[in-house]
Design a protein around this nucleic acid. Structure first.
Ligand code: MN
Ligand code: MN
Ligand code: MN
Ligand code: MN
Lengths: 218, 218
DNA sequence: AATAAAATTTAGATTAGTCTAAAAATATAA
DNA sequence: TTATATTTTTAGACTAATCTAAATTTTATT
């Protein structure tokens, strides 16, 4: 079995390898896990011993199939629990992440599958992130963000790239929630501040905010 | 915050103090937690520093109000999750304990209360154990067992004193589940083996089995 | 009351995960 | 291409939780 700590490292490496590609760096891992690079080196060695990662000194680290499977399974748990908390226990989308961080480590096949079934086999979590299926297949988002749109274009909000409470909370106030339709009315040339129409209301949002909103053009 | 380990010690001390009364012994704790007496002594000192228990060398240990509150809260979580697993995820009563042992440590007030509400504020868990309310009040069972009955008496099964998979599984085969009505038809004088009538079927069970079945006379 | 047995505590070691400070390797810049 | 900066690793130390073996205290038995 893997400790919570090991699982969190694998998850971090998985997420970084989606961005950084091959050879995830020690510093990047330390950064995400709020630990020190020296601690990361130690853990990487341990994970390498367990054949969870492949590793050459100074060359960064990569997940093996075994390591990827664990990471994806934890992410599956995380996202299913988030759905549960929102759909069944009426939590808001900005409240569920920390709880899911704990629940995800109860990594028992039967529990996960029963939960999935109970929730009706959801495809996305409350933040629009795709839920891996039980074989570990996961469909990644296209990653078109609101900030990529031009004036006049319309889109549906399908996800967020930033999961902080303050961001999610702010979005909700602006009614920029999953499924909402937006139309770009104006873009300030200087700093890409946008005027968008949501639910017939006009709202102004910064580039910082719009570049973290994943959308699908319509 | 308390570690999982600390919470498990507090829970063990709580359960033992219900049986042993004042001054829970080091050996008994070691026994329940499958650890060594010397480890228990170390942890007791730590819990005493945190004002979770009162402790005098060689005199056994007692929970403080603070320690009791934590223990009861963990037990509340445990039993609520067991209800969830059985009622919502269709687990059987012999499958839920180990999962609940993990889930119970996600000790977040809001989660517990929402779960309680979602489940319809259940009073008992799938094994008939009472669920403490949110203020920590808990109604203990009377502890009349099937083995206490005399020939001819009738009773309803309301709980079990033994939670092992094999016992629960066995009971289910005999249809001796919560809510079932039993009538004592015969008791062997030698070893208290019982003949009981359940659902119009006659069954024979050992004293070992009947003394772990909590019942309510009717 | 003295002695033997059982329970409990202490001493010293071990493992997982972390840290700081220093050394080594790699990347960047003059 | 040498010097500088950055990244990564190593060395050594710390804490939480555990263990074994030995010492101490309490309890039970003669
Ligand atoms: Mn999350
Ligand atoms: Mn999410
Ligand atoms: Mn249980
Ligand atoms: Mn139970």
């Amino acid at each position: 079995m893997n400790s919570f700590t090991e699982e969190n490292y694998l998850k971090a490496i998985y997420k970084l390898s989606l961005k950084e590609g091959q050879g995830v760096s020690t510093n990047a891992i330390a950064d995400i896990l709020k630990t020190k690079p020296s601690s990361v080196t130690d853990m990487i060695k341990k994970l390498a011993d367990k054949k969870m990662v492949s590793y050459q000194k100074y060359q960064g680290v990569n997940l093996t199939k075994k390591g990827r499977d664990v990471a994806v399974s934890i992410i599956r748990n995380h996202r299913l629990w988030e759905v549960f908390l929102v759909e069944k226990l009426n939590f808001k989308w900005d409240e569920v992440h920390d709880l899911a961080e704990e629940l995800e480590h109860i990594n028992t096949h039967k529990l996960t599958e029963r939960l999935d079934e109970f929730l009706g086999f959801p495809k996305f979590d409350p933040h629009g992130d795709p839920i891996p299926d039980k074989d570990g297949n996961i469909v990644q988002h296209k990653d078109i963000t609101l900030s990529d749109l031009s004036t006049g274009e319309k889109a549906v909000i399908v996800g967020v790239k930033e999961h902080s409470k303050s961001y999610l909370n702010y979005l909700e106030q602006l009614q920029l929630v999953l499924g909402a339709e937006v139309e770009v009315k104006d873009i300030v040339e200087f700093d890409a501040t946008m005027s968008v129409l949501v639910n017939k209301k006009q709202t102004i949002i910064s580039n910082q905010a719009s570049k973290n909103l994943i959308v699908k053009k319509i």
